[in-house]
Design a protein around this nucleic acid. Structure first.
Lengths: 96, 96
DNA sequence: ACCTCACATTGATGCCTTTCTATATGTTAT
DNA sequence: ATAACATATAGAAAGGCATCAATGTGAGGT
C-alpha cells in the first residue's frame, strides 16, 4: 500500500460525519449543484461549503464549476481508492 | 441500504484517525493482544484502550478476552459491511 | 458601472475527540 | 489473602471540528 496513515485517514473522513453521508446519499442519483444540496439539507450555506471541501479533499467527490454554479458528483475513482484499502486489509496486506 | 447516516458514520470512524489506521496495519498479520499493540505505538495505555473501543464499536475489529489479555483482530464481517456501503455508492444506490 | 446571485472564506463559538494522569477492575500467581 | 499484571474507566486539559453570522469573490444580468 503506497498510502501513509494520514492520507488514508483523509480519504475516509468523507464517511465519518453524519451530514457528509447525507450529502453522499443525495449525490447517488447523479451530479447536483450546491444549491440543490443546500435545499435538501438542514444546514447553512457556509456549513455545506465546509463539508464539500472535506469531501473534495478526500477525493470521494468531484467538483465542476459552471458559471456561478458548482456541480458535485461522486468520484468512482475516489471510491475505488477507498475500496482498495479495504481489500488490502481484508487480504492480510496483499495487494490483490 | 438498511443503515442510517449515523450508523454508517460510526462504521467509518474506524478509518478516519491516524492512530487507528496504524493499529489496523498492525492487525493485518493477525490477532494481537493489547500489550503488543501498545509496544508498537507511541501512545499511553488508556489512549490505546480508547481507540480500541472506537474500533470495536465500528465493528471493524473483534475483541476476545483470554485471561487477563485482550486479543484484537480485524473483522472480515465488519470490513464487508464497509465494502457493501462503498459498493452501494458506486452502483448508484443499487444493492448489487 | 451596478446589482444580484451562487458560492467561498473568515472569525467566533460550542462541542466532540484525543490525550493524559490517576484510579478501578478483574485475573493469575504466590 | 495478597501481590503483580493487563486492561478499563473517570476526570481533566488541549486541540480539532462543526456550525453559524458576516463578509469576500466572481460570474451574469440590467
Amino acid at each position: 500500500m503506497k498510502l501513509n496513515e494520514k492520507q488514508t485517514a483523509t480519504i475516509f473522513k468523507a464517511f465519518c460525519d453524519e451530514n457528509r453521508i447525507k450529502i453522499l446519499q443525495l449525490l447517488i442519483d447523479g451530479e447536483k449543484c450546491a444549491c440543490k444540496l443546500l435545499e435538501a439539507m438542514n444546514i447553512t450555506q457556509p456549513t455545506l461549503s465546509h463539508h464539500m471541501k472535506t469531501l473534495l479533499d478526500s477525493g470521494i467527490v468531484n467538483g465542476r464549476k459552471e458559471g456561478k454554479w458548482m456541480h458535485y458528483s461522486i468520484s468512482k475513482k475516489g471510491l475505488e481508492k477507498a475500496q482498495e484499502y479495504l481489500d488490502f486489509l481484508k487480504n492480510n496486506g496483499k495487494e490483490e
